[in-house]
Simulated assay, not measured.
Amino acid sequence: MTSTEQTGPKLKRGEKSIEINGGNVVYEILGNEGDFIALTPGGRFSKDIPGLRPLAQALAKGGYRVLLWDRPNCGKSDVQFYGQSESHMRAETLYRLITELDIGPCILAGGSGGARDSMLTTMLHPEIVTKLVVWNIVGGVYGSFVLGSYYIVPSILAVRGTGMKGVAGIAEWRERIEENPANRDRLLAQDDGEFLKLMLRWLNAFVPKPGQTIPGVEDEMFDNIMVPTLIIRGGENDLDHPKRTSLEVSCLIKGSKLIDPPWPEDAWERASEKRAQGKVKRFNMFDTWVQAAPPILEFLGDSAGR
């Protein structure tokens, strides 16, 4: 390593790193026995985002081993840039991670962006999935546009204005560099023009289109999901994860089970308000997810013989 190169992340007890598709992926496993559940959060949030671990611990207490992982561009894992969309890239990573760790076929579970990543992994690699559990599914004009404007547009503006140095300076990527200093070199190594092309392609995935109930995925792909599936529907007035989208997904996944949310119908909106008003000092958007543990465990037990 030269004096200008940056080292990778500092791993805490229980964390491990494995190279997948040219980048290091940080993961950990909770529980000592039972079937594996690959649990995926939303956004570009890490496995350590508040609210996720209590759910993982509850599932582990219920008799399962839980894989928590930092997806590319999340947490301590390396940034990576390829694929039809960011979710396509993550689906390929999850497939390879499960394969390399030899823990498949296994159960996939995820909320928000993690729901999309889990569904897409099941569509593209159905042979490694035994059951699927998803909630807080993003869809609709507002939900899709918000994701594109929040996660993709700032990088497009930065690379067009000041190149990859500008990209490395925006808040989203500064956080990735803080958690994994090696990500600065990985970002700066990207070609400006190729990075712009990729960002435009990833942005296109969030443009609502006929025949795409979830962003960037053709509805016909849902025919590939043939495993027992539990869908926790979106809240009544949740614009980010519309009730309508989860109902449509339940129609597209044949034989899926749709249940009402175990948390209050307005849980997402109230959490959003608290954050906007500065009433919470920590991330609180996933705090209610632990309430999904009982219905998830019940579903996994009921579908064990299917």
Rank of each mutant, 00 (worst) to 15 (best):
K10L: 11
F36G: 01
L101S: 04
R275L: 15
R233C: 13
Y151L: 13
E298M: 11
S112Q: 00
G23T: 11
D238R: 07
D223S: 10
C74W: 06
S112P: 00
E92F: 03
V129A: 09
R53I: 12
I103W: 05
H88Q: 10
Q84Y: 06
P9L: 12
V141C: 09
V280P: 10
E273Y: 02
R96T: 12
K254R: 15
E100G: 00
E178W: 03
Q80P: 04
Y150K: 13
G43I: 07
R53S: 11
Q6I: 05
K76M: 11
F45M: 14
A276W: 02
Y82V: 05
L157N: 09
E92A: 10
G166C: 08
R176A: 14
G163R: 00
E298D: 15
I225F: 07
G83S: 03
V138E: 05
L94T: 04
R244Q: 14
G104S: 04
A171V: 07
L52K: 01
W173Q: 13
G193L: 10
D185T: 14
Q57M: 09
I214Y: 04
Y142N: 11
Q6V: 07
V141L: 15
V167I: 04
K10G: 06
K243D: 15
A168E: 07
M123L: 07
Y82N: 06
S272M: 13
H125A: 09
E194I: 12
I128C: 10
R116Y: 02
G104I: 05
R160N: 15
N24V: 00
R233E: 15
N183Q: 08
M226T: 11
N204P: 01
K12P: 06
G43K: 04
G83Y: 07
L101F: 00
R233K: 15
L239N: 08
C251V: 10
L132W: 05
T2Q: 08
L203F: 09
V146Y: 07
E194N: 10
